[in-house]
Nucleic acid binder design. Structure first.
Length: 590
RNA sequence: GGACCUGUGGUGCAGUUUGGAGUGCACGCCGGCCUGUCAAGCCGGAGGUCGCGGGUUCAAAUCCCGUCAGGUCCGCCA
């Protein structure tokens, strides 16, 4: 990462030290220096010589002690010595400071330490619960130090980009009002109002819209967001978003602002600036990649096979949609592997998965498959032509409803062609024109795909009442290498459109007033057209760090069950604390 | 709510298929030796509720049932 010079004092000098361990080099030869840090390794050679590898956040330097030294791993030391070139033949090319060492060292023990529960070293894999229980030790490891500092660099770049683009940083409340909508919220019971509660915000969505009514014009915030939903590798209870909103803008303005910020962040994190961010419509992303967050680092696009099997006699392929993907060199996959893929497809909702190994006979390529005998020669030829598959390839075909066929193949595409997070390049993507509604609720009303303040696509306004499922929206997602990095939308600022959407959603006027009253009330006093976005910082940094899990870029994350092995949170409240809040536990149901 | 995988000295593993004494490996730890190592080397040593509970059996780390914890995924995440 190329951090600005000003971000770190070159020397790191303090009252206790003159230099940093990892920065010492040939230029310092001859200087008498004091460095502070932790003992990474002690190597004693009898009573006349000992080596100490001293580690701080910049790296490790070898200290030579003329005698024995009673220190152990992870002792905290101040070591004073003279920087000198290493003797002939003892240079360590694997160590950045390996040209030099600290000679004739005087060692002061600032604090002894018990043996750590695991070695502070990137070379060992340690159980994650053990790491989290002793996170303060885990974070000493170079990998974690690098991740947290990378994150700081990303934040710095994002903040600079927002400032430069005229955005004003505003903090919004963590204690907010409960809303019966959307993600489960964390509840904070009120002591002063027993029986009443605040909730922690899932996002500052409504607050930032109020800031637009308030005339802030351009707002941003590094917003902590909290959602009481099940955790995953890319989801924690609490996460951080670069949250932003702007007035008198349209979709293109927002995309430009966000793109500049994340491309700056990418440049700061990786040293290279990715090219302009391309756009796909949601419909196109689904058609071509079977997902609304396609990984553009590889091809394997879905092939449309409806025309090939339009009049097929094979009942399994007589479906509204028939699509396939080509797995290059996939013909060598074993039968058991193919069975697993089939089970996987069924688990995702498909009725089945048809596979075809492409063989290379004398008369041209042929198909080897349990279902090949059900297909006519024309269909087999058509399948090969439509997919472009060649000998040695594997073709996977799903026939089903359009959405399902696409998503099943999209999942298989990712599983079979997906690359590790740590592999470049960085392929940002905008997915635009999301549907306004997604599915229907118990009463048959459409369900808001994003949130109920999302502006319908102007070309689809007429369909709001007649064909809500076909209404596109001014909602958009930012995608990076198959990860959803964030989403945003143009908001509804006009009462008449808002009323029509509420009606479509089946939200009565009094219900809307009770749920969003303060927002709708504010909108009566002059709401500017506005739009916004939120970028998930944890995911962005995880990708730049090449980490599969955002836990690796969060200082103190929780396990999948929401447990913190270090603090043992969550813990039962003391009876007195419960009483103060006017709470009484229900009897356990076991 | 569901599927799959995992649980064995401080750490990482093997052992579980086919039941037979807590057996083994690497790292770490403790003690000793060692004047140029750097994942030091050599010698010696300590360290275990095989996640937990129950069952089968003469005998269970190993088989069966249950349960807890962790991970990945589905659901969920307006």
């Amino acid at each position: 990462m190329t951090a600005p010079e000003s971000s770190r004092p070159p020397s790191g000098a303090t009252a206790l030290r003159t230099h940093l361990c990892g920065t010492l080099g040939p230029d310092d030869v001859g200087a008498r220096v004091t460095v502070c840090g932790w003992v990474a390794k002690r190597r004693e050679h009898g009573e006349h010589l000992a080596f100490l590898d001293l580690r701080d956040h910049t790296g490790v330097v070898q200290c030579v002690v003329p005698g024995t030294v009673d220190v152990r791993s992870e002792y905290v030391l101040a070591v004073t010595g003279e920087v000198r070139r290493r003797p002939e033949g003892t240079v360590n090319p694997d160590l950045p400071t390996g040209d030099v060492e600290l000679g004739d060292c005087a060692v002061e023990v600032l604090n002894p330490a018990e043996p750590p529960p695991f070695v502070v070293d990137d070379r060992v894999e340690v159980d994650e619960v053990v790491r989290l229980r002793h996170r303060y030790v885990d974070l000493r490891r170079p990998r974690m130090q690098a991740n947290l500092r990378l994150r700081a660099g990303v934040n710095r770049a994002l903040r600079a980009a927002m400032d430069r683009q005229g955005f004003v940083e505003v903090e919004t409340p963590l204690l907010w009002a409960p809303t019966p909508e959307g993600a489960r919220e964390f509840t904070v019971p009120s002591r002063l109002h027993p029986g009443a509660a605040y909730v922690l915000p899932q996002s500052p969505q409504l607050a930032k819209q109020l800031l637009m009514v308030a005339g802030l014009d351009r707002y941003y915030q590094f917003a902590r967001c909290l959602r009481d939903e099940d955790l995953r590798a890319d989801r924690q209870f609490e996460f951080t978003q670069l949250d932003l909103e702007a007035s008198f803008v349209d979709q293109d303005d927002v995309l430009a602002v966000v793109a500049e910020a994340v491309l700056d962040a990418a440049e700061a994190a990786t040293g290279e600036r990715p090219g302009p961010v391309p756009r796909l419509t949601w419909a196109e992303a689904l058609d071509r990649y079977g997902t609304d967050k396609p990984d553009l680092r590889f091809g394997m696009e879905l092939c449309e096979l409806g025309a090939v099997f339009a009049r097929t006699g094979f009942r399994a392929f007589a479906a509204p949609c028939v699509k396939g993907i080509v797995v290059g060199e996939g013909a060598s996959l074993t039968r058991s592997r193919l069975d697993v893929l089939t089970e996987r497809a069924q688990a995702l909702g498909a009725k089945g998965l048809a596979w075809f190994r492409v063989t290379g006979g004398e008369g041209g390529p042929g198909l080897e498959s349990p279902v090949a005998k059900f297909l006519s020669d024309e269909e087999q030829t058509g399948l090969l032509q439509a997919t472009g598959a060649g000998p040695g390839d594997l073709v996977l075909v799903v026939a089903d409803e359009h959405r399902l066929a696409c998503t099943v193949l999209g999942a298989l595409r990712t599983e079979l062609g997906g690359r590790p997070v740590s592999e470049g390049p960085y392929r940002f993507l905008w997915v635009v024109d999301f549907p306004l509604f997604d599915g229907v609720d118990d009463q048959g009303h459409p369900v808001a795909a994003h949130h109920p303040f999302t502006m319908p696509h102007p070309d689809d306004l007429d369909l709001l009442e007649s064909d809500p499922a076909a209404v596109r929206s001014r909602a958009y997602d930012l995608v990076l290498n198959g990860w959803e990095l964030g989403s945003g939308s143009v908001r509804v600022h006009r009462a008449d459109i808002q009323r029509r959407i509420f009606t479509a959603l089946g939200i009565a006027e009094d219900e809307a007033a009770s749920r969003f009253g303060f927002l709708l009330g504010a909108f009566r006093y002059g709401a500017p057209p506005h739009a916004g976005f939120a970028v998930g910082i944890d995911r962005l940094v995880a990708i730049f760090a090449g980490e599969d899990s955002i836990r690796e870029v969060i200082a103190f994350p929780k396990t999948q069950s929401g447990w913190d092995p270090m603090t043992d949170a969550p813990k039962p409240l003391a009876p007195g604390a419960l009483a103060d809040l006017g709470l009484k536990p229900l009897p356990r149901r076991d």
